[in-house]
């Protein structure tokens, strides 16, 4: 059980970290571009919200499988397939949770508006400097929401991880799949324990998000 829990936390942690790095520039661009086709990109990013996880998992399985063109360059260095591996699981989770990271960040960046960045520019800050010293701190609530949502959403996912991971014990078997297997095996006691734990976790996440929303960031020197 500890192994399953550790694997789940590792997956959620890695997914959150990678997603924040990927989603930040993407959300920044979406928040500031005037190109009409940015909405095409935004729609693609939001797709995992409406797509059945099995559909996403199915395509990921094909894309990361041994016969995929996407895998060809990796096969040269000895990696035949990423399906049913932890790495594959992380890739799947990143794509599945992408909208939950991008949307709060995009909203946060849009809420800042042009003015603070213009002020920073007239005070000799380069665009990158202004982004790091003004936009990121001002968007801090958005970062917290994005991180919490991504982490929680990854813990809670089932369909995608089952399709792409296959639920191999010790490698790709996460909490939600373990619960499914326990119920199938009629081990109700342990299923109760894990399900109850996840319930409490989910409630704590939502509550902390709501509390966070009430509090505004304090200025620092």
């Amino acid at each position: 059980m500890a192994e399953v829990l550790w694997l789940t936390l590792r997956l959620a942690g890695a997914t959150t970290l990678i997603l924040l790095l990927v989603a930040t520039p993407l959300a920044w661009w979406l928040a500031r571009t005037r190109a009409w086709w940015s909405e095409v990109v935004a729609a693609l990013v939001a797709l995992p919200i409406v797509l059945p996880p099995t559909v996403l998992g199915f395509y990921l399985l094909i894309a990361l499988g041994p016969h995929s063109v996407l895998m060809a360059p990796f096969q040269a260095i000895g990696i035949r397939t990423l399906a049913f591996t932890f790495t594959g699981l992380v890739i799947g989770s990143v794509i599945y949770s992408l909208p939950f990271a991008v949307q709060p960040l995009r909203n946060a960046f849009q809420a800042i508006g042009e003015r603070p960045l213009e002020a920073a520019a007239t005070l000799r800050a380069t665009p990158l400097d202004a982004f790091l010293s003004v936009a990121v701190p001002l968007a801090r609530p958005g970062f917290v929401v994005a991180a919490v949502l991504t982490f929680a959403h990854t813990i809670g996912e089932f369909g995608v991880v089952l399709m792409i991971g296959g639920g191999i014990p010790g490698q790709t078997e996460v909490l939600s799949i373990e619960i499914y297997k326990l119920v199938e095996g009629l081990e109700w006691g342990r299923a109760h324990l894990l399900a109850g734990g996840l319930l409490a976790f989910a409630f704590a996440v939502v509550l902390s998000l709501l509390l966070l929303d009430r509090r505004t960031g304090r200025p620092r020197p």
Binding site: A125, T126, G217, P219
Partner: peptide
């Protein structure tokens, strides 16, 4: 603009809300 060295005082002040007064004054 960041290479010009102009000071710009906006109508709405446009202070950096995440910085103290000292942080604002020292920014530029």
């Amino acid at each position: 603009p960041h290479r010009r060295g102009v000071g710009y005082v906006f109508q709405d002040a446009a202070l950096f809300e995440h910085l103290s007064v000292r942080g604002n004054l020292m920014y530029g």
